[in-house]
Amino acid sequence: MAATNIEIWQSATVVEVIPVATDIARIVLEPSLPVKAEPGSHIDLMVEIDGERAKRSYSVVGSNDDGTRLAISVMKAPLSRGGSIFMHSMVPGQRLEITQPLQNFPLRVGAQRYILLAGGIGITAIVNMAAILQRVKADYTLVYAGRSRGAMAYLDQLTEQHGDRLEVHVDDEGTSLNVPELVARADADTELYMCGPIRLMDAVRRTWVERELDMPNLRFETFGNSGWYDPEEFIVRVPKLNLEVTVPPGRSMLEALEDAGAEMMFHCRKGECGLCEVRVLELSGKIDHRDVFYSERQQRLSTKMNCCVSRAVTSATGAKADAAAGGPAVITIEPN
């Protein structure tokens, strides 16, 4: 089995682009160096935003056995950094630079019980896991929560494939997911794998801790692209480097600082490792912590932040009206 996470960049041809839900496109790629994708794997690929290249990560929804066809699904997010808009412009025949499937969210076979939890576009990381658990006849429940049925990709396919094992929660039908009720179903022999918005994952994590379940049995992956608030433009001041930089909604603080010539330390660029941590000297506004490196306690303190994913927002509510009235948030930091 390919145990390597060393990125092998290669070209891939887009062979299929089809809508699978509101604003969600399924994109099938033919990689030049095919490798079968394990459940939980993702690919990195290069997108172009305003003529600049940037790296994005997408979960692999599935691949065929020899890995010659590999499917991802991309949600068009107007408030995001622009990668999804580029991906939605793809048409068959176009080429992309991608990596082979990389694995940071492995599914372990052999647990007594599984809960797979997908929120919205997070289903992309979960589809393949559910298929494997079904194949090995595991005891699993697939819980899929979304705003409306029309926005939930692969719903029909999953219903057909998993029958009673699929549990669907739809906000606009009044059947929203009750997180404490869900976590109450987990016992010491249950592994819960989740992918979804940070609010959902935080709620699950908090309940998991309260119920004193084993943390290693709670598995999740975040690409750091979901926050508590919508991204806003904000200003970063770095007295040590004599810099003042405006971070647009579509760019991370780390990228904006790099664009301005600051030599920043980083590694994962998705809020996991803590290497891009900066000290917060002064703040007008609030920090939207989007990382999973800090504990809740550390996030509340807000004396530091991981600038690869976390952002400053104008107010405690994050309401856009406040931003318009009072101007952008301003944060003064000292990098390592």
């Binding site: 089995m1 145990a3 940071n104 969210f105 492995p106 372990r108 076979v109 052999g110 084993d214 943390m215 290693p216 598995r219 999740f220 992956e221 975040t222 994962c268 996991e272 490792c273 803590g274 999973v292 490196f293 800090y294 504990s295 306690r297 550390q298």
Partner: peptide
Amino acid sequence: AGRCVSMPAQETINPSATVPSFP
């Protein structure tokens, strides 16, 4: 299972921290 259960010098565990476990 090859999953990190303790990561010294920090309050959380990096979710990617696993080593392959063989049946």
